[in-house]
């Protein structure tokens, strides 16, 4: 190594990287974000089992009750317990986010690998497809797709799955192009390794990290967008407990019963913060070169 200062730097980062699991656990972002996300998952899975109220049953004599011991977050215009509805809402939001992200990752990674590895005309064609997808502002397209399919939670999931994969395709393609010319891939060609095996053995593991980071951040974005769509009336239909729908339902009572709007908003925010902080932390550990950075602004 003749670049001595770089050598120092590299060796510093070697020191941190060699204790990979350790650094994963001690990165504050991963710790905090991970805790929030785990907590949410626990609430989403077990919360509905222990909450004493029915999230949809109307109790007309208990309308607009402020926060109290019986109703820690108050009740809404139909007398339903806000806290219970938020706990049930977590299930809806997380399930939707995970499903939509999974579809995006699969579509995006496949297209990115193909474009990057095959190259040539296939690359040009696929990248035009990506450009076309990226030409639509994400929410506008999702809104129209969900609207045309008819308002429902399932259709919002479909809409959010078919938009937003392009970011993954771009990140993966960029990484593949970068990794493809590395000598270790050329070395594999020397032994006559078939292309498919090269892609699986050498390219995929090296592009997984930025995808993991991007997906984590994306979970947060999807929670936000889905809430937005539900708020506009396109997603979950009343009386399904969903955070965006709850905000929409409370907006007429903003002055008299502000908790109806405030509580689900904080729930959304906490979820998104959790995913963002976790994503940031993961990126520091998994993707120190910020390969996925540029794509975050998209979708």
């Amino acid at each position: 190594m003749w670049r001595s200062l770089d050598a120092v730097r590299e060796w510093l980062s070697e020191r941190t990287r060699s204790q990979f699991a350790w650094s994963l656990r001690t990165t504050p972002g991963v710790r905090f974000g991970g805790t929030v996300v785990c907590l949410l998952a626990v609430v989403a899975v077990f919360g509905p089992l222990v909450s004493p109220y029915d999230p949809t049953a109307q109790v007309l004599e208990a309308r607009f009750e402020g926060p109290s011991l019986a109703h820690p977050l108050g009740t809404d215009a139909l007398g339903r317990d806000v806290a219970t509805r938020i706990v049930h809402g977590a299930r809806v939001s997380l399930a939707l986010a995970v499903a939509a992200t999974a579809v995006r990752v699969v579509i995006g990674t496949t297209i990115g690998l193909l474009a990057g590895y095959v190259g040539g005309l296939v690359d040009t064609a696929l990248m035009r497809l990506v450009d076309i997808q990226l030409a639509f502002p994400g929410l506008v397209l999702a809104l129209v797709i969900a609207g045309v399919l008819g308002p429902s939670l399932r259709n919002v999931m479909i809409a959010l799955s078919v938009v937003g994969w392009a970011s993954y395709a771009r990140v993966v393609r960029g990484n593949v192009l970068e990794v493809k010319d590395r000598p270790f891939v050329e070395a594999a060609r020397l032994y006559g390794t078939p292309q498919r095996r090269i892609a699986r053995r050498h390219l995929l593991p090296n592009v997984v990290n930025p995808v993991v980071v991007l997906a984590t951040m994306n979970l947060g974005t999807i929670v936000l967008t889905a809430a937005g769509l539900s708020f506009l009336g396109l997603g979950a239909q009343p009386p399904t407990p969903e955070w965006g729908t709850m905000i929409a339902g409370g907006r007429d009572y903003l002055r008299s019963a502000p908790w109806i709007v405030t509580a689900p908003g904080i729930a959304i925010m906490a979820t998104v913060i959790g995913f963002n902080v976790l994503g940031d932390g993961l990126r520091d550990v998994l993707d120190p070169d910020h390969l996925g950075e540029r794509e975050r602004g998209r979708s």
């Binding site: 947060g220 965006g244 905000i247 903003l254 002055r255 502000p258 709007v261 925010m269 998104v272």
Partner: peptide, 22 residues
């Protein structure tokens, strides 16, 4: 910045209405 990114903008809108308008 983290709060800004994580806040649903429709919700922020209502909070602002609540505070500044109402």
């Amino acid at each position: 910045a983290l709060l800004g990114i994580s806040m649903p903008n429709f919700w922020l809108g209502y909070l602002l209405i609540l505070l500044f308008a109402l």
